[in-house]
Amino acid sequence: MAHDGLVLAPVPRNLAVEARNVNKAFNDHAVLRDFSLEMRPSEFVALLGRSGSGKSTFLRVLGALDAQVDGHVRVPRRRAVVFQDPRLMPWLPVLRNVTLGLPQTREVKERGLATLAEVGLENHVNAWPGTLSGGEAQRVALARAMVRDPQLLLLDEPFGALDALTRIRMHGLLRDLHQRHRPAVLLVTHDVDEAILLADRVLVLTGGRISLSTPIDLPAPRNRSDPRFVALRRRLLAELGVEAD
C-alpha cells in the first residue's frame, strides 16, 4: 500500500540528449524503430551504421531538421550541426559565415575571430569560401558550430569528403575542441577507426535499432596498433557486416 504524501518522484537526471521510442518511416519503410538514446553532457558518442541505416535521419531529428517523427525527443537549446559538405555561403567572407545567425555585435565578431584562431584559420578571416581547400572549409564549418558554444554538437559525417591526411588532422582538432569546450557530441560516421579514436561510446545502428553499444575505455592517446583497438575494430566491423582482414 502506498503511503499518502509520499510520492516517489523520479530524480531528474542530467542529460544532453533524451530520445525514447523514436519511430520514423519513409513510405512504409521503417528507418528508426523504437530507437532510444540517452547522452550525458560532454559525452562523445559515435553512431556507426551502413548507408541507409537511419543514422543521419536520427541526427537530423536531434538537429530539428526533421519534425515528422514519433516518440519522445529532448535536446538542449544550444545546438550546432556540421554537415558532410561545409555548406558555407560562398558570397560571404569566412568570418561572416562563422557569425551567421548571430547578432552582428563587436563581441560576436571578437568571438568569431577567436574561434577561427582556434581552428587555425586566423589568416583566412576575410577570404572567400571558394578560395579555401576542402579541409579549411570544413574547419570554418566547425568554427561556425563552435562559436555558438553548443551544449550539443551534431556531426553528420563531417570528414567523409576529406582526404586521408586532412582527416587525421581534423580528428586531432575535433578532440582538442571537445576537451576544451566539453559539448556533448554525436558523431555520425561510417568510419570505424574514427569512431574508436574519438568517442567515449560507440553505437552500431542496424535496421533502425541499436544492435551494439560499447564504451571505449582505451587511454588517450589512442593508438590504432593497440591490440584492444584492433579487437574492437574487428568486432565493430563484424557488426557492420564486414570481415576484417
Binding site: G63, R79, A80, V81, F83, D85, M89, L100, G101, R148
Partner: peptide
C-alpha cells in the same frame, strides 16, 4: 542545403 544550414544556425527571416 544552404538555406537549411542557415536555418539551423538561427538565421531569421530578414537575415
Amino acid at each position: 542545403s544552404l538555406v537549411e544550414a542557415a536555418r539551423t544556425f538561427g538565421v531569421g527571416r530578414r537575415e
